[in-house]
Design a protein around this nucleic acid. Structure first.
Lengths: 237, 237
DNA sequence: CCAAAAGTGTTCAAGTTACACCCATGC
DNA sequence: GCATGGGTGTAACTTGAACACTTTTGG
């Protein structure tokens, strides 16, 4: 629908001195697994400042791309996670003049979510140095990625508390205990099982499925899914 | 403290084909006055697409500036509002490839707040076509500024509801009725006077001043100020 | 029959909502 | 003395927090 409008005039290219910066997109991609939050890191090797460091997947925009398109492409090429289930939200744009010692780079930061269950076996593991790191191991990253990761985490936690965003970290079908655990992992707080179930029921955001999860040596658990795949702004926790 | 690190190597300039875009900063500057929200607009005259249109104050970044510094400079030069009391928050970065028909421009959008009382008489009025517009008049703006304004307003409203951001729209000293009116203007809802005062008192975010506002033909009103100039995240409304 | 997680209600405290009258001043 | 906005309390209701036992399955 919307496209570059052609006019009789030639398109003026901005003068060289105003095209001083390159644009980058960097992504903090999170998943939850085994009771912990993980973030995807890639090796960074940019002498002389950054050798054998880790960083968030990211890189430069190409001329035909939006920042969001670049973020998804770079997740694919740099961190080897290519999945249509990735949820992406813009976070903040970092424009400090000296944030990259090699020159002026303005980075649009994103945070992204993916359910562990949506990852292939290959994606769950390590690929060309790119791997899932616990938060406590993700320190001393290259560039300003420590700050970016901190902003991303704080945004993730606050958005989970007043939206239905948690669904982007869960498989399509899940039990109430799994939902509760996901909230506990992200918020870092334990939740009362009975109060939690009452609240979720009143919110009406779930659809009860006929099937149950069987196989444990205990009572089978009812399965649920989200009634809407849209992330809604409701007081959740 | 942090500055561009010099190394033995020469600083590599990114290749031309990656420096395709120019960076812009655009600002939705709000104030409240006379029971309404106003936004500062400037005339836009960029043939062939935008002639005699209005837009948000904004423009291109210079090489030595962060986006935030550019936003403040452009408020000064384009909308003629230069005030140390301006509160500025980054909003969203707009990177659609065709958002500016003249070429690739990536814009970092900001929203900004200023108390009407902090404006000089000159700044309250019109200056070289730049003026305070009501929200209902601020339609059909140039570029994607309609969208930017909508995002800014929605962010303003939601942040006012869970922070003490309202202080950035109020004079240093104010009455409880003025505070209540500010909330009513921003949220578009009427508030019960007694419940409001109870809540504000319990939050403990105000400091009661000794002075009163006299002069009306009615009982003088106690004056208050915010206990802290930091914007805190507390459930306010 | 034992271990393990699933599922289910009640009580009390706190917070939110609705609502009406007297007070202090200027004219 | 009257018009104007400033200031104050209580009762009903809703929400949130704390807390323990029975159920269903697999082995």
């Amino acid at each position: 629908m919307k496209k570059t409008e052609k006019t009789g005039d030639k398109v003026k290219k901005a003068p060289e001195h105003l095209r001083f910066a390159v644009l980058a997109a960097d992504v903090a991609l999170f998943t939850i697994h085994d009771g912990k939050i993980f973030v995807r890191l890639i090796p960074v090797n940019r002498p002389p400042n950054y050798v054998k460091r880790l960083g968030l997947p990211g890189g430069l925009l190409l001329p035909h791309e939006t920042a969001e398109e670049a973020a998804l492409r770079l997740l694919k090429t740099k961190s080897h996670i290519a999945d249509e289930h990735i949820w992406l939200e813009q976070l903040y744009t970092f424009s400090r003049v000296d944030r990259d010692p090699r020159g002026r780079v303005v980075a649009v930061g994103y945070f992204a979510l993916i359910p562990w269950s949506a990852l292939s076996e290959r994606e769950q593991g390590e690929s060309e140095g790119s791997y899932w790191s616990t938060l406590s191991d993700a320190r001393n990253l290259a560039y300003d990625h420590d700050e970016m990761l901190a902003v991303a985490l704080s945004r993730l936690r606050s958005r989970v508390a007043y939206t239905t965003l948690i669904q982007k970290l869960l498989p399509a079908e899940f039990t109430l205990t799994e939902l509760e655990e996901a909230y506990e992992i992200v918020t870092g707080r334990t939740i009362d099982k009975r109060n939690f179930r009452k609240k979720i029921e009143k919110l009406g955001i779930l659809k009860e499925l006929a099937r149950k999860r069987e196989g444990g040596r205990h009572r089978p658990a009812r399965l649920y899914c989200f009634a809407s795949s849209t992330v809604k702004e409701i007081e959740v926790l």
